[in-house]
Design a protein around this nucleic acid. Structure first.
Length: 272
DNA sequence: AATGGGACCTGCGCGC
DNA sequence: TGCGCGCAGGTCCCAT
């Protein structure tokens, strides 16, 4: 499932391939993923615009276009952006929902099995509600700001890490990995954490995300890179999806519990 | 304020 | 073989 490292990977892949290209045609196979404006207007307004800049905020991908508007892409759980092989062939994937034809013969496919993903064409991406509700980017955050955000929070540390208004970009998978590396039990109340534990979480957040980006993200379920190839970070997962398997540190068994309707993986022995 | 649940979706793996 | 069920989780929204 795409979180910050996966979206960042796609952003970097896209920068190499589609910057400066013109959108020549948009084919919509399932209008449900176009959230704004109506599909017909989406298609019409995009045609002829050039991709000027590619950004990421949290898990949202932003393509700034030549007239100042922006195409935003949220992959949610099963969304993919992949380079199409054959022009005019929507059958690259049965989940192909929208195809962008670009100058130079490039094809960009938006696939999304579950139709949770969102494409928007907006005048000013800074004004969209989702952006305005986002907390700081993990890599921009200083320790003193991070610490302050913690102190009042009664909530459990794992749901807090996943709260996008707290920090942008961390989802279920990386929250679990970060807490394992920081040796903190995901059920701990945020405000109960010691100075040392907060420092560890702060440090491991950056470290884990950085390493995941360096390995092209985690291919779990549907996530693939722009090329269609998987990311390699999965081999480095210490707890996510490893319930019943031995902890790499203490050899005890990794446990899976339910927290807020989400699977939480951790090592009860290493994480206190 | 925090928490829990449902809604949105569909493929998959399970038990029978 | 095939059915029905629960599960997967990002975000929004409502209720308690």
């Amino acid at each position: 499932m795409p979180e910050l490292p996966e979206v960042e990977t796609i952003k970097r892949d896209l920068q190499k391939v589609i910057l400066g290209r013109k959108i020549t045609k948009v084919c919509i196979y399932n209008p449900a993923v176009i959230r704004q404006p109506l599909p017909s207007a989406f298609k019409k307004h995009l045609k002829g615009l050039v991709v000027k800049t590619i950004l990421r905020r949290g898990k949202l991908l932003i393509l700034e276009l030549s007239n100042g508007s922006a195409l935003t892409v949220h992959l949610r759980m099963t969304g993919q952006l992949v380079l199409g092989q054959k022009p005019g062939n929507p059958g690259g994937s049965k989940a192909s929902r929208v195809t962008f034809h670009l100058s130079g013969g490039r094809i960009l496919d938006f696939n999304d099995q579950r139709l949770f993903g969102e494409l928007r064409l907006v005048d000013d991406w800074r004004k969209i509600k989702f952006i305005q509700g986002l907390g700081p980017e993990p890599f921009d955050l200083t320790y003193s700001d991070f610490k302050d955000m913690f102190s009042k929070k009664k909530t459990k540390i794992k749901p807090l890490l996943m709260d996008q208004s707290f920090i942008a970009g961390i989802g279920n998978l990386y929250a679990a990995e970060i807490l394992f590396c920081a040796r903190v039990d995901p059920r701990r109340q945020a405000r109960s954490l010691t100075e040392g534990e907060k420092q560890a979480i702060y440090r491991e957040t950056k470290k884990v995300l950085k390493s995941a980006i360096a390995h092209g993200g985690s291919s779990i379920d549907d996530y693939v890179r722009l090329s269609g190839k998987p990311g390699d970070y999965r081999k480095f997962h210490r707890v996510y999806g490893r319930q019943g398997k031995p902890c790499f540190v203490c050899k005890g068994l990794i446990k899976k519990i339910n927290q807020g309707g989400r699977g939480t993986y951790f090592c009860p022995k290493c994480q206190k």
